[in-house]
């Protein structure tokens, strides 16, 4: 019970921080663009960070 809650918490933290972004990308990719080769981890993060920081992301 406690262990399961811990796993949920760790997954939430991973999701919030973007730690699991690549896994989520692979899952999404497998679902929608299965005919193309997915980006590798390094290439994906490069694009991801450029995308994330191209708009207003932080406030006062």
């Amino acid at each position: 019970m406690f262990k399961r809650k811990l796993v949920v918490l760790i997954n939430a933290i991973r999701h919030l921080s973007g730690d699991d972004a690549y896994e989520r990308y692979l899952a999404h990719h497998a679902q929608t663009h299965h005919d193309e080769i997915p980006l590798n981890r390094r290439e994906f993060f490069k694009q991801e960070q450029e995308r994330k920081w191209s708009g207003v992301r932080r406030c006062c």
């Binding site: 921080s17 973007g18 730690d19 690549y22 981890r41 390094r42 993060f45």
Partner: peptide, 14 residues
């Protein structure tokens, strides 16, 4: 670290 040593391991790096 997040880019080259352990790509994408945001939590570890943080």
């Amino acid at each position: 670290y997040i880019r080259n040593i352990r790509p994408g391991r945001v939590l570890e790096g943080s």
